[in-house]
Simulated scan of single mutants.
Amino acid sequence: MTSPRTLLSAWNLSPKKQYGQNFLADPSTAEMIIFRSKILPEDIILEVGSGLGALTIPLAAAAHQVYAVEKDPNLVQVLQNEILSKSIDNVEILNENILKLDINGLAAKHDRKIIVFGNLPYNISSQILIKLIKERSCVSRAILMFQKELAQRICGKPGSKDYGRISVMLKYCADTAKIADVKASLFYPKPKIDSEILEIRFKEHQDVVADDETFFFSVIKAAFGKRRKTLKNSLSASELGISAQNAESALNSAGIDPSRRSETLNIEEFVKLGNTVYKSMI
């Protein structure tokens, strides 16, 4: 593996802050990630932010097909050259924005669910996660690298300061586990903090199910929109369009004290609240 610094220099390129580019510079770490992820020869991979191919190339050796999504057109040229030089024929590079990509269409080509990989840019990590949650019918699991502080929020538990909108949405539909820590020193350029790799495995069968999932996610967003406020005040001050009186009534009907705050509710309580509010509005 050619070092990112050397490769970028050869192409007269430099990392772009607007894309959150920090390139993995240690091939053994890439191999470790793929080994622990237990990729099978029949797997279809969607890689988010393929960059210079640190994960793309070893993924191609392990899986049946890799779709490498890279927004930066300059890096697409570099990656194409790397792929060709190694005679790899099972990688398709997509110069697209992951947030606009038709993931279902890719899965449909192979008539099977896909696995998502990626070292996610910090500034759009939450948006990508929400997209995967909403399109999880065609995604079996995701192995994603986050800055450590975001990974901790994703895995936040009820009652903790890390518990928030994303952790609730994931607890509703997925099981999350840590795969590894990755030191900041293993990237070029070196980020300010270390990273953490999480496996997000979407549930085939959920323990609790919302009556209307889109509305349920809106209730979660509303509950954490003003997290210092009580649930009654958070819901009534949100875009849901309900009054303080109706919010209090819905919370009471769900068996939830209106004076509680959002971070104290477990997933079962959130689903019950979402269903109660939904029924009160139809």
Rank of each mutant, 00 (worst) to 15 (best):
D111M: 11
E239L: 09
F146K: 10
G156C: 05
G255Q: 13
V116N: 01
K100G: 09
T214I: 14
I143G: 01
L46F: 05
S259A: 15
N119Q: 02
L231Y: 10
M1G: 14
V219G: 00
Q18A: 14
K161C: 04
A68D: 06
S243I: 07
K183Y: 12
Y278I: 07
I98Y: 05
V182M: 06
I220R: 15
D181P: 05
T264Y: 13
L46W: 04
K183R: 06
L7T: 15
K134S: 08
I220K: 14
A142Y: 03
I39D: 02
I267N: 00
L150E: 06
G53K: 00
V116P: 03
G241H: 07
R112Y: 10
D175A: 07
I39F: 02
N12S: 04
L79Y: 05
I115K: 08
V91C: 07
F23L: 06
L231D: 08
A142K: 03
G49I: 04
E70L: 04
F146S: 05
D72L: 02
M281W: 10
K232N: 15
K226S: 15
R227K: 08
I33S: 06
A62H: 11
E213R: 14
D102E: 02
A61Y: 11
N74S: 15
K183P: 07
K221L: 14
A61K: 13
K157D: 11
N97Y: 03
T6N: 14
E92A: 10
Q65S: 04
P121I: 10
L120A: 03
I45S: 01
S236F: 09
V69D: 02
I93G: 12
Q206Y: 13
A247V: 01
Y122A: 04
A237C: 11
A60Q: 05
F117N: 01
I103L: 08
K190T: 15
V76A: 00
K86E: 02
A54T: 13
I143D: 03
L84F: 10
P41C: 13
K279Y: 06
R153S: 02
I133C: 05
V168I: 08
D257W: 03
D162T: 07
S234C: 09
Y172T: 04
E82L: 09
Y163A: 04
N119A: 13
E82R: 14
K16G: 08
E204S: 04
L8F: 06
G49F: 01
A184T: 06
N266R: 05
K157N: 13
K183A: 15
A180P: 12
F35G: 12
E42W: 14
A61L: 15
I267H: 09
R153C: 03
S140Q: 06
I166P: 03
P258D: 12
S137D: 07
N119D: 01
